[in-house]
């Protein structure tokens, strides 16, 4: 079906045409983009962006199991003995939750990496109390037959303290 002008009531003037070369390179471009987007979807991964697969919400979550949610807890210079929840957002630490969730193996292998989050926080929030400790926690929210039971298990995955 057409995408042209509808119902203007005015006799249309002749359309502005393009030459063969102008049409040819545009057609080739469309074919190339189609191939790149399709290849990204068939064999590519996120690193192919902008030709990566459109995989928002594409993974299957078991109807009975646990939903994982990762967060951080910190000890501040004001209360160094107490762990408190902190936002794992770009505004607070420069990176977001998914970016940390994707690096759990590296963080577990080298917890000192968490110190960079404390330093980014100090730069982004210079007026907030400094962080002297930071740990990554994973909350497992139990789901049975697609319904959360209210049960939550929490694991500490990695911990860093200011030397």
């Amino acid at each position: 079906m057409g995408q042209g002008e509808q119902g203007s009531g005015v006799a249309p003037s002749p359309p502005l045409r393009m030459g063969t070369v102008a049409k040819a390179w545009r057609a080739v471009l469309v074919v190339a983009l189609t191939l790149l987007f399709c290849a990204g979807s068939v064999v590519g991964d996120d690193h192919w962006w902008p030709f990566s697969p459109w995989r928002m919400f594409s993974t299957s979550q078991a109807a009975t199991g646990s939903v994982w949610s990762t967060g951080i807890e910190v000890r501040t210079a004001d209360a160094p003995d107490e762990w408190v929840h902190a936002s794992l957002t770009p505004e607070n630490v420069g990176v977001n939750r998914a970016e940390v969730e994707g690096r759990i193996p590296q963080i577990e292998a080298d917890p000192a990496r968490l110190g960079t989050l404390a330093r980014s926080h100090a730069r982004l929030r210079p007026d907030a109390p400094a962080w002297v400790g930071l740990r990554v926690v994973r909350h497992k929210i139990v789901v049975v037959d697609r319904v959360p039971t209210g049960e939550v298990e929490t694991d500490v995955l990695a911990e860093w303290s200011q030397p």
Binding site: P53, W54, R55, F57, T59, S60
Partner: peptide
């Protein structure tokens, strides 16, 4: 297509 590729056909019956 990505849902089928990464989540499988069972995606529609999952708890995503």
């Amino acid at each position: 297509w990505a849902k089928i590729r990464f989540g499988g056909f069972e995606w529609v019956n999952s708890a995503t």
